[in-house]
Amino acid sequence: MKTPLMLDTTRMAIHDGPGLRTTFFVKGCPLKCRWCHNPESISPEPQWARFPDKCQRHETCTMDEAACPTGALKLYGKTMSIPDIVAKAREDRVFYEQSGGGVTLSGGEPLFFWEWAVELFQAFKAEGFHTCLDTSLFAPPVAVEKMLPLVDLWLPDFKTEDADRHKTHTGVPNGLIKDNLKLLVKAGAKLEVRMLIVPGCTDGQDVADRHRYLRSIGIRDEDVVELEYMDLARSKYAALGMPDTMPKKPL
């Protein structure tokens, strides 16, 4: 079983499903979207980032996050066991109960670690949590099938309907994703499909095509959300030493 490193935990998340939620982010994703706003989530390995605008290149630098006087150093990717994750989620139980919220797993790509995700979600369900899964759906169908009884609301990304464009901009084809979407529809899963609109990449006709496709496979318009693209992650690409591939957002 592949176990991911964890990137971050967001408490009181409000955009990752209904109510007040705790969202856990895994590190590692099989896609390489040009516009990825979490480039630190692509590699499954731990990564040091040095934010050059903050770094004063101290002679005594020990590459110690806690001792860095300017906060320029950051280590992405930390281990967190399933019991640790569940314990963290449990802290905010009263907020979920009062708001109709729960827990969300995001990334990275959670289904990149699907066997682990199944185990985690079984633990979430044992706690009685409402669960959401934020996923690209680029995963073997068996992963989706195993997760089906454990996920209350699926939050799949649908990046583009065009196969070539998908391959160009994300590095992988979208056949598997479409198959998994159909699988979810067939199973009657509750969905909120997210469509990021990236200027110059997946805007204009692409948006219309995506809507048409989703309708054609039986997904209702009210279950589809369009998201605005923000190019605010450039400093992270630089800090990680990765080439900045983010498309520019027109003013």
Binding site: M12, I14, L20, V94, E97, Q98, S99, G100
Partner: peptide, 25 residues
Amino acid sequence: LPASLAKASFGASGIAAFLRSYFEM
């Protein structure tokens, strides 16, 4: 609280849930 919570469609009910949670505890 982040303004995004206040402005979200469930702003008033989200804030109310947050307050109720504290009083519940």
